[in-house]
Design a protein around this nucleic acid. Structure first.
Lengths: 210, 210, 210, 210
DNA sequence: TATGAATGAGCGTTCATTCAT
DNA sequence: CATGAATGAACGCTCATTCAT
């Protein structure tokens, strides 16, 4: 029985490895072909697996995308942790967190796209994990905002949770704007997009302060 | 000759009507199937026309989408005009404008999606009309922000154009958040999305004020 | 009645002019898009006529192509006349005629293509005029071969008509070879295609001589 | 493991069989509808396969045509080998080779069309196999002409390669003539086309002889 | 568990031809 | 005579998913 359990555990582990492998390959394909260019054919080829095998590990294509989307959020959360760890003051933590968003976009454009695309337009994020990863991010932001508020950085009537949502939504929006209007912005404003982002941070945080 | 001219004019008119009809049908299909669910087959069926006929009025599918997208922006701009017309104070104009965005979203969800989707993700809105409609919106926002600034509502160091971009980007982002997280927000915050939007407006405007 | 007849005649004339105009336009389109790129749409546009109008003058697209094909043959025949007119000796006439074929190909590539394509592959040259134009060419070649034979240039047992057919077929074949294998020939033989053609003429004529 | 290898080999074999089956069906369709009448729909129907399945075996329609074209050339080359094998004298080999061309046309009209059509009008036979099969034919003809020349059958100044090209081009031309003008020729000359071909051979070979 | 052949509806687009006006 | 809007079958091709082995 123990043996069996061990075998089962190994199986589980191997299954997970396979799954991860497939996800990695899907990612590679997306990197090459764009999010919408992902095809099961290409993933199978990249993974050196039969097409049918993919369906043993994932219900359908949607699930692969959802899991990549989840992974992207987990990465982002990790980036948040790292960016804020070195700061003591919660307001500076928050600023650092916001800056890490744009850095994340620069370093992992695909992940950023996955986050912002499905943050903005997905219909059924009923998938437990995806929703969870999303909530984890929110929770982390809320916790920092909360700290900042408790230390008197924000107006006392400010609802920390609400502000976190606003912050998150607005930031995604700014990032999309930067992505789609980069040319226009740099031409029109004669400044790079980092500048714009800096001003956005100033603005939104000032709006929350006393 | 006069007759002929009349005939020609009538033809022109009828052609325009047909075009509008097709666009309406495309809209209906999108309403049903989502933006990406639009197919020429479905449009033809909806319009009770042969598929080939569509191509007499539109170069390709892209053009249909672009024209709907343009139409959506024109509607939005009209909503901006109407919302701001009744206000005298530019700051109140700006507030009214922002409120009109969420009302627009409620009344024309598809149009809102078209605006925000292609604002967020389009590759080549080099199409003259689409780009123009986009710029018209920007210009209108900038003009109001400018007025507000000139009347001393904002910090003197605030760049009106830049702030307009930020405002636009952030607002789209908030709207997307509301769309995709409505359930979570209302559950979590125990408040409706209008409330959230109201606070967003307060926040972002306060951030720009002295 | 006379009046009516005159009107009728004028009508005929005008109809012919229109027809010619359409053919010219079809030719222009072919020149631009290739023989198989010809479309009724393009012809109508080029001719500044409605598409339906084309069908008043031509039964269908095939007929347009057939008539252009006929025209091409008439041009070729004219080229034959001109090339041979300046020669007295029938053998030299024949040589001149053959040379005029390759010059025709260089000067009117489209016409040459029309001649050789439909010489080689048409199924139903039942069209009276096209067949006639083809036969006119044959007849002309035959007449020259005949003269040459009568003057003792060829073996007495040579059937002039038969030789003419062979000459015509072989020449078209050589031209096609030159067209499709130009690169290979010049690379492989280190000589230009005119040289090849010259040797072909020598060869085929020598074969017919005593 | 051995078992697996066997399975793989069987798979390979079956795949080849399927491929051949599709090609056969494509051939059947061509036979019925003409070379240009070939459509993937028709092939799928003929093969009792789904349209998509065809694309598992062939990249696209072009590839099917190219492979049939290659096959036709391989058949022709085989015919050349067989026709010449029984002859000792290179001149007689050459004659036999030429006769085999017209027999090939009679026995495999579609293959003949494929050879002569793409010999005459193809743009990019850069496809490795197709080009190779074409070159193989040329090489074989050249080799025989060379032998004949070396045995003193031809004029010493005759360039064997050049003559081979001429021979090939002219022969294709004659064949096309026979195809498209059969009726006229038999009516006009009161002789069957074989006769014409016989005279052509005499003529062209005599032209090359001393 | 893994395969990969097969599916087949679906896609956007073209174009020769017709016909009511 | 002339129009040009409308047709609709046909085209080559894609791709997520299934299923017998």
């Amino acid at each position: 029985m123990e043996r069996k359990s061990t075998t089962k555990a190994r199986r589980e582990r191997e299954k997970l490895i396979r799954k991860r492998h497939i996800l990695d390959c899907a990612e590679a394909v997306m990197e090459r072909e764009g999010i919408f260019g992902l095809s099961m054919d290409a993933v199978a080829k990249e993974a050196e697996l039969a097409k049918g095998t993919l369906y043993l590990y994932f219900k359908n294509k949607e699930e692969i995308i959802a899991q990549l989307s989840t992974k992207a959020r987990q990465f982002l959360l990790k980036a948040f942790h790292e960016a804020t760890a070195s700061q003591n003051d919660p307001l500076q933590k928050l600023e650092a967190l916001l800056w890490s968003v744009i850095r994340f976009k620069q370093q992992h454009p695909l992940y950023n796209e996955l986050v912002s695309l499905f943050e903005g337009h997905r219909n059924h994020p009923e998938d437990g994990e995806l929703l969870q990863s999303s909530m984890n991010i929110t929770a982390f932001v809320v916790s920092i905002v909360d700290q900042a508020k408790n230390q008197g950085h924000f107006r006392p009537d400010l609802n920390a949770t609400e502000f976190s949502y606003i912050l998150w939504g607005a930031t995604i929006g700014i990032l999309q704007l930067i992505e789609s209007r980069q040319q226009v912005i740099t031409d029109h404003l004669q400044q790079d997009t980092e500048h714009l982002f800096a001003h956005y941070i100033q603005l939104i945080l000032r709006g929350a302060q006393k």
